[in-house]
Write a protein that binds this DNA or RNA. Structure first.
Lengths: 233, 233
DNA sequence: ACAAATATGTGATATTAATCACAAAAAAAG
DNA sequence: CTTTTTTTGTGATTAATATCACATATTTGT
């Protein structure tokens, strides 16, 4: 019985955290994935993947939260997005030029799966439905990222901070009370403003009763107003 | 002989402007594409596709140049990129939610091909190699766009204008002498600055001998310096 | 528990680039 | 070939936000 439990945890077929895409694979293909993938654990703060490295494996985030970012020497860090569990990391890089374009670091303890890229590619070529699911996920990701960037560039600091709070509320935590998984500096890097400006606006929102704020804990008090600020820039 | 020429122009198999992806289809599949697609012509300035519309057909740009942009009422126009021939328009929108997220307008007279989306989708599902090619093209597009946005947001006006000039030189025209296909306002919309600022910087570059400029014609005189300005922001 | 290191908050100042208000030039229309 | 419309260029002004320079918390390590 004990060995059976271990076995369940170790096959993709029985994995609770299986991806939407892998769900369309047949038993044989899933078995292939099982024998060509490797689970691993990372502690909060650890780097999962570094930009510039060659993609030797696909990484699938089974549990936990990570940041997707770029940090070039001399430049300030830019956070593209916060990545939730059940997501493949760096797919566009794999299909683009096989060099990772973004870095990923764990914001919480994470469970990840390394998957062999050659097997991953052959699955795409031999199973159109799998390919289709991957296309859907990369397409949505692209639309979301570009959408966020486009809007950001039209907005002033108030609108951007409002956006960030709504992003954590609606996309990441799906609730209006949460604890930010990132520092003020990182929040600023996520929305492309200075740390000081981000801080100031958060405190302004607090003093105006739009949010309640204590350290990294935020509760949205006046959602309508926050959305209005996000809209109007 | 005359009819043969006509026929050649009208089948995908003999199309000079066939996409990389379609090139991996077999004869039968190409025949299917031929009978489910329709060529069309657009004049400079015409809108090819409007954001918010439902994707009823995939559009493939056979010849000409177009701009990919977003224009919401009240907001200023944002140009995402200039699209060259041999490109599918709006693929991420098709796989995302079937609503077009971007608009496209012809910057030159264009020849386009409307392709039925149901057939396109079934080709992806039944031909993994085709799917793979589509994945490559959407992935590269996504990386390029996000790369451009990320760098832009770190740069001041000088760096952005330099970027735009280099973009037309290296990506669009592949030469250091070209005529801008867009107005000053559109150039500003492409790099996210005001028209006045864009104009001022262009003139500054001209007066410093970095480019020669007459109306919309640009020749890059000092490429090294221009690249340095692009790098240093 | 204490010291050191790191993160956060705050005011003053500087800088950048947008906006405004026109003038000039170029393109389109008649 | 004019007249009208659109695009482009230019100076002055304004507004937004980054930067700097610290003070104050908070976290981490010993």
């Amino acid at each position: 019985m004990f060995t059976e439990v271990i076995k369940k945890d170790n096959t993709c077929h029985d994995c609770k955290d299986i991806s939407c895409a892998a769900a369309v694979l047949n038993i044989k293909q899933l078995g292939l994935v099982t024998s060509n993938s490797q689970e691993s654990f990372l502690k909060k703060g650890e780097v999962i993947l570094h930009e510039g490295s060659l993609t030797s494996h696909i990484i699938y985030l089974k549990t936990g939260l990570a940041k997707e970012y770029i940090k070039r020497s001399g430049e300030k860090e830019q956070i593209l997005q916060i990545v939730k569990k059940h997501t493949y990391l760096g797919l566009p890089s794999l299909f683009g030029d096989r060099i990772n374009h973004y870095s990923y670091a764990a914001l919480e303890d994470c469970k990840i799966c390394y998957i062999d890229i050659n097997m991953f590619n052959s699955l795409i070529r031999e199973n159109g439905n799998f390919a289709y699911e991957i296309l859907i996920s990369t397409s949505r990701d692209s639309l979301n990222n570009i959408n966020r960037f486009l809007h950001r560039s039209q907005k002033k600091v108030y609108g951007r901070v409002a956006d960030a709070i709504l992003y954590f509320s609606k996309i990441i935590y799906e609730g209006d009370k949460f604890s930010l998984p990132i520092s003020r500096q990182e929040l600023a890097d996520l929305i492309g403003v200075s740390r000081e400006s981000a801080t100031r606006v958060l405190i302004k929102f607090k003093s105006e009763g739009i949010i309640s704020l204590k350290g990294r804990s935020i509760t949205i008090v006046n959602m309508d107003l926050l959305e209005q600020i996000s809209q109007k820039g």
